[in-house]
Amino acid sequence: MKNANISECKFSADMVSYMYGELSESEGSALELHLVDCAECVDEFAAVSSARYEVYDWKHIEFDPLETPRFEVSYDDAVVPSWSDKLRAVFAQSWAVPAFSFAALAIVSVLVIGLAWMRSGDEEIIAENPPSQTVAVPAKDVVKDEPESLPTVGPRIEVTDQKPIVATAAKTKASLPKPHVAPKIREVPATTAVSVKGLDPKQATAKNEVKAAPTLNAFDDEEDTSLRLAELFEDLGTR
């Protein structure tokens, strides 16, 4: 409230001038007369004066005793033209504008020629080497060849129903759309190959690769034989 009143007071603007002794004599007298009647302005004047005194005191105690430092500005350090000044100085030369224009034109020409040359080079390369087409080998064909391409030497044939077989040649492998399932060859123990009489192990292994499945029916044949013998005994008994 007090502040609002004081800001409305017509003497508030003169108060600081009076405080710093910058009012004319007549203006100062008018303010003094006003202060006699206006208690709020007196309070305000006291508050502002005390604030000013604090700053004055600070300056008097801390700043006044200080000697003015010796400032040095040497030509070597100070006259450092900025990059814009340097640029301006270069372009101020009479030869600069035509020279830079010519250089810019030359650079652009080189770029355009280079770009055109690169494009024509690309077209020549395409004409000489048409893009190779990847032909996917049909899965069935690969499977057909597989028994011949499988290794023929080795104690075991590690071929199962689930294991995918990839085309033997690397190129074919790359071109295959997806892995193929092995032909249904049942696993044969290594001993089977050895047990085949009259055959070289290599030949036996090869045989196993091709005709492995029928050999496993041997057990069933024996069983059948035993059954037939039982029937024979029964027949003999009845007789």
Partner: peptide, 28 residues
Amino acid sequence: TFQEISETLELPLSTVKSRVYTALRQLR
């Protein structure tokens, strides 16, 4: 002086006085 500040800061004299007054009040 207020006049010198006014010329240095290129501000009206009344603005300078008003600022000094406001500064002192805020300081208080």
